[in-house]
Amino acid sequence: MSPFLPGARGTQPCPNCGAQVAQSDRYPEYLCSECEARAVDANGARVTGSNASFGGGFVLHWPNGEHDPLPCISARVWVDGREWDYSEARFGGVLITPARER
């Protein structure tokens, strides 16, 4: 699910592949949906993310059933061998952004 980006005025490049995504002042570096679809956990298992409810929150999912859904603040994922953070977007939806120090 893509983030809700109020006031998007143009496009910006995906920081992983360079594809154009909706411009966001809040998230100047978020992955495009094609890169997001390649996200895996530390063991290489495919993962997806979703909002926990209409009120917010983040849940990490393993669509192949490796683990039960995991409610969390954010999750470290890998796309094309690079580390990223998967989390809830401020106004709804989820996104993957560059990994920050924890």
Results as ranks from 00 to 15, higher is better:
53 S>M: 08
81 G>Q: 09
50 S>K: 13
90 R>P: 00
54 F>D: 02
14 C>H: 03
61 H>Q: 07
77 V>Y: 03
30 Y>R: 06
6 P>A: 12
56 G>W: 15
96 I>K: 08
70 L>M: 13
18 G>F: 11
55 G>Y: 02
18 G>Y: 11
97 T>Q: 10
22 A>Q: 11
99 A>N: 03
81 G>F: 11
8 A>R: 06
81 G>I: 10
51 N>S: 10
16 N>Y: 04
27 Y>L: 07
94 V>F: 03
34 E>T: 12
100 R>Y: 02
3 P>I: 02
50 S>Q: 13
32 C>E: 08
99 A>Q: 01
44 G>S: 09
17 C>Y: 11
100 R>S: 07
40 V>F: 11
82 R>H: 13
19 A>H: 07
38 R>N: 12
32 C>T: 09
82 R>A: 14
54 F>L: 12
78 W>D: 03
59 V>E: 10
34 E>Y: 12
69 P>L: 08
55 G>P: 00
82 R>E: 10
80 D>H: 06
67 H>G: 00
76 R>H: 12
22 A>D: 07
24 S>V: 04
75 A>E: 09
64 N>V: 00
21 V>T: 08
17 C>T: 08
70 L>F: 06
22 A>I: 07
69 P>G: 09
62 W>C: 05
96 I>Q: 05
44 G>T: 04
42 A>F: 12
62 W>M: 01
93 G>V: 08
33 S>F: 14
32 C>R: 10
80 D>A: 14
20 Q>A: 15
6 P>Q: 10
81 G>M: 09
33 S>G: 13
12 Q>V: 06
59 V>Q: 15
84 W>Y: 15
24 S>D: 05
14 C>P: 00
53 S>F: 03
96 I>L: 14
6 P>W: 08
82 R>N: 10
6 P>M: 12
41 D>H: 12
63 P>I: 03
55 G>E: 05
89 A>W: 01
5 L>W: 03
87 S>P: 00
99 A>R: 10
28 P>D: 13
7 G>H: 15
49 G>P: 00
32 C>K: 09
15 P>I: 05
58 F>N: 03
60 L>W: 01
19 A>D: 09
92 G>K: 01
30 Y>N: 04
4 F>T: 15
35 C>P: 00
21 V>H: 02
